[in-house]
Design a protein around this nucleic acid. Structure first.
Lengths: 126, 126
DNA sequence: GCTTGTACCGTGTGGTGCAATGGTACAAAA
DNA sequence: TTTTGTACCATTGCACCACACGGTACAAGC
């Protein structure tokens, strides 16, 4: 498969990587069990930093689209096609929007919401 | 009553104003119906900008601690003492914390939560 | 020795929001 | 005319964060 990243594009590089791999899985260009290039190799091919590719792989594995098997490499997850259509982000947006609207309707200032949010995000567990 | 603002303090000036007025209400130094100094006058006394005082008054009125009656001035709200102990902020923190924890437990990255939050806060209504 | 994924230290850039400041203007009422 | 609260234009300094980058190191296995 061909992966192209656009440095000038509006989307972050790691996000472009994720999207293109998900697209390839969804269109059956990448089938379960297929080996992916290593982090270092892909970074070298695309002229990216290792950590940028590593971030994309880490998030793809969290979504169960790929499987990393340590020193043996990285592979497409058996249920990749099903999992890559799940949009975790959409669920987050909907649920957050519901909460924020409740605050705004109660007269809470946007600034106050941001302050509370900022405080909470700096704590590991509440 | 005496109001003192500390420019070097960690708290914003408008927040110091709010806190001191609430404290005065809670300790009965300011009773319902009492007239407060006008925005311009208080700003002049404390050597602050009009808008800083106006912001404090606006938030105090939202919490029903004071009542602004247009050209007639600003007064302590009849139910000020009860309302100034209501902590809207605490409710916001609790509810937000609940939502954020649900995200984190589902494997959502803090960064992703921040992105979604940032996107939502830039929209007036969702 | 080489590769694998992973983890840690750090730097720099650009975007964004907040607090506070300045000035100007308005309608309503004393 | 002056005072009231309120609204709009603007700017400054500060702080946080996302993104991407560079380097180094590790254990596990070929």
């Amino acid at each position: 498969m061909n992966i192209i990243v656009d440095i000038e594009g509006p989307d972050p590089l790691f996000a472009q990587l994720i999207q293109q791999i998900k697209d390839a899985v969804f269109s059956d260009q990448l089938k379960p069990g297929t080996a992916l290039p290593s982090i270092r190799q892909l970074a070298n091919d695309l002229d990216l930093n290792n950590k940028t590719v590593a971030k994309a792989y880490r998030l793809l594995e969290r979504d169960s689209v790929i499987q990393t098997k340590g020193y043996r490499g990285t592979f497409i997850h058996p249920d990749a096609k099903a999992n890559c259509s799940i949009n975790l982000n959409e669920w987050v947006t909907d649920k957050l929007s519901e909460t924020i609207n409740e605050f705004r309707n109660s007269g809470v200032t946007d600034s106050e919401i941001r302050i509370a949010f900022g405080n909470l995000m700096n704590k590991r567990n509440i």
